[in-house]
Design a binder for these strands. Structure first.
Lengths: 210, 210
DNA sequence: CACAAAAACTAGTAGCGATTCAGGATTGAA
DNA sequence: TTCAATCCTGAATCGCTACTAGTTTTTGTG
């Protein structure tokens, strides 16, 4: 049933408020790790009461999801033009201050596989989008003759992303190997091509057409 | 100070009790998903009071860890002799009733990358063990001439495991592709060898020398 | 066997933290 | 200006983990 009356839509400053809150969550995640984040702290940092925060995001899970999405946004817009996204990934994981974000990403991706989880759709879309992006890129390389025509672009894309995600997990458990170098090795093996311009989306930063 | 007196060690039935509890947790995880598991239910199912459960496992995280380890045990011992472990993995993931275990595994592997998390050591050892296992297997294949000498066994092992873990995540978010077939493709690309006997450890089942 | 001492357990409860409720303040379209 | 929709707050509520203090069971020892 459509709403007969009412429904005026969000007020002007609401979008900004939501961004502030998401930023507050992100800050706290980076500082303390997502398990130590409590809604009270989020509220304090965002300059809002606790129910005030929950008015904008219905649950804590949605708060964490908002942080992840917010990170996607700021990360992507901050990417230096011309820098290979592959390299950007390496950078993204190397920074200690981002470790906690990757942790959150990994943990949530486990939780979110439950279709009732608020972040379910997010992760699903995320995989789709980045798989498609990279698959297209591979097809382009094939058209250019840089990659053989026998390579299944969709499958290769899937495998490259899987490798990336898995490497992250290993790296979290025990750092001390060059995650970028390993990934590149996998790409070369899968495509038979020393890639420098295969694009996709970083672990905690989805591609976005601003 | 060493214990001058005292310290009699666990009683006879304690190991069994702990197994019962771990089994109870595992059952509940399979039934409801790990997020819906509460210690009260665990206690009820194990036929014990709540503090009684917490006497054996200090926290809920340890309970979940116990479930994971318990699954490793029963899974590994139940593996039909002669069946390729690669195939076993495929089977393991395909079963719907195991989905919740994989979820738990993934989520926890995110949480556990924090060194203070109870499961930190578990996951670290797990990667090490299975990496070593598969690397040795690859070296064996190289000795047999089935795999070229230019392949870096350690790196390949790392990448295969990473791929496996990543494929699982994708599969959880959106099933509907042949996870075993994809993995095999990756293995072939990385080793240049149609492997049937490369061994490692399944996603939620570590190798154990009973 | 008895009996101390450690281990295994129970009832009760403290207390943290997410969520809800019942309003109050603010915004903006008419 | 008016007034409904939106946004936000203080004060509970409630589910859940984990602790405290004391009780029963097990088991080595004489």
């Amino acid at each position: 049933m459509g709403k007969v009356t009412g429904s005026r839509g969000s007020y002007a400053k609401t979008a900004e408020r939501r961004r502030d809150i998401a930023q507050a969550v992100l800050d706290l995640v980076v500082e303390k790790g997502h398990r130590a984040v409590v809604t009270a702290d989020v509220a304090k940092r965002a300059g809002l009461s606790e129910p005030g925060v929950l008015y904008h995001f219905a649950s804590k899970d949605e708060l964490l999801l908002a942080a992840l999405q917010h990170f996607d946004d700021v990360e992507l817009t901050a990417l230096p033009e011309g820098e290979s996204i592959l390299r950007a990934r390496e950078r993204a994981v190397a920074g200690v201050e981002r470790t906690n974000i990757v942790r959150l990403h990994t943990a949530m991706s486990g939780e979110a596989s439950d279709p009732t989880h608020p972040a379910h759709e997010y992760f699903k879309q995320r995989w789709r989008r980045s798989n498609k992006l990279m698959a297209d890129s591979i097809r382009q390389l094939q058209a250019d003759g840089a990659v053989g025509p026998d390579v299944d672009a969709d499958s290769a894309s899937r495998l490259i992303h899987a490798t990336w995600e898995g490497l992250q997990n290993q790296w979290l458990a025990e750092p001390g190997f060059d995650i970028g170098a390993e990934l590149e090795k996998a790409i070369v093996a899968l495509l038979g091509y020393p890639v420098e311009h295969v694009v996709g989306s970083p672990p905690a930063g989805r591609s976005r057409a601003r």
